[in-house]
Amino acid sequence: MTMTSETQTTVRVPQTPFAEFWSYFIQNRGALIGLCFIVFIVFLAVFADFVAPHHPHEQFRDFILVPPAWAEGGNAQFWLGTDGVGRDILSRLIHGARLSLLIGLVIVSVSLVLGICLGLVAGFFGGFVDVAIMRFADILLSMPALLLAIAIVAILGPSIVNSGLALSLVYLPHYVRLTRASVLTEINKDYVISSRVAGAGALRLMFIVILPNCLAPLIVQATLGFSNAILDMAALGFLGLGAQPPLPEWGSMLATAREFIQSAWWVVTFPGLIILMTVLAFNLMGDGLRDALDPKLKQ
């Protein structure tokens, strides 16, 4: 009888979705390296006050433009050298991680939450609501991202909060589109109808029944969006529209170091390198997440 064979299969320990995801994720070497680097950066950001050798704003007037410790004329007190007004670059980078990660997190969360809500509403209700929301998203998408952000910041005035808001708005349509597409594929499945039969209301259907099944592509997009947010924030900072001095933000550090690009290479190189590595780490991890979460790519 089939009963006996079914009893035997229960002996196997059922793998939770997380365990399954994790076993796929750690197979991807690049993703794992990316994750490790991100954990490292997060650690630095959280414990910046204890890890950083100096205060990020402290100016050592006697040590202006000191090269890195290992280079000729370097000082062991300043590992990565000092900038044009004698601030320790390493300390500024560590404190800058705090700002950059926080900005990335806030931008991604704001656009993710808003995007999910708008996408769910558009996909679930359809009709006029759908058309209105999606055309709004299309209009936002039809403008170059950075240009739109610059325009918004120009209207609101340059500050770190305003540029964060601008970037959230710029990234919003990606999440709206992604959510709506997933909702449309899920909404006609029998389990949704079955929940409706059981008496579930619209809110419950949207957020508890449908949303968990739409999350996989959103998680991937959010991870990749994180690196975009950091990059665009750096670009806005570089243009002087983001963080204002003396805040240690990676992009604005690059911008102020522009004048030393010929004479003091370290002032420009290290902020650039840290942006590059962080963005790369997020992209690697995003790829790994996509491989692990997308059932079509699983063996």
Partner: peptide, 17 residues
């Protein structure tokens, strides 16, 4: 309908969340 009427669907693979 939730209390007194229930429904079973064709494809069991998609009718559970």
């Amino acid at each position: 309908t939730g209390d007194e009427i229930s429904m079973i669907f064709q494809d069991p693979m998609t009718s559970l969340n």
